[in-house]
Amino acid sequence: MNIFRLAGDMTHLLSIIVLLLKIYATKSCSGISLKTQELYALVFLARYLDLFTDFISVYNTIMKVVFIASSLAIVWCMRLHPLVKRSYDKELDTFRHYFLIGGTFVLALVLNEKFTLQEILWAFSIYLEAVAILPQLVLLQRSGNVDNLTGQYVFFLGAYRAFYILNWIYRYLTEPRFTRWIACVSGIVQTGIYADFFYYYFISWKNNSKLKLPA
């Protein structure tokens, strides 16, 4: 474990806490894409299959349980909570995310570290996570005004993978034979997708104005 990876995991955890805070404090999920939340639940379920088979550390196990439980809780909330589900922007959240699932699964069948179910699902989860934010970014562009908590949620979600890139560089320099090409290339693509969001987020922060993504 290095400081970059710890910072990445804590930023990721913070993004989930901010999202939970927004939903519970405002009893609303307006501006949040249910499709992105479903994709994240799928990412964690596909990636943490080794939760019961490979014990890495207490920290690793606890974080996996927290990520799986929180992503499922958010999907449950947005689908079934009587008060929250009414504020879901169903007509704005129209990204065809099934194409993302299909495309990344086919890519995982072709590009993986080993042609076993667990490795294919792991690669699938890595590729899917890279594009999972797309429905959310499209929703933000359509809904125009972005409330602060939603903006912070997306910002921390993008920042965490940027920390992971620093972690991969650090591990590549300090550990012999450390290679994580699938995670690294996918992580760079993932962080790149946030680039324009980061730009508008920085502008809104500098001008102390409301975050607005151009349609």
Binding site: R5, H12, D54, I56, N60, K64, Y164, A183
Partner: peptide
């Protein structure tokens, strides 16, 4: 056969 490194990252 080739053993993939443990997935120690989240």
């Amino acid at each position: 056969c080739y053993q993939t490194p443990p997935k120690d990252e989240l």
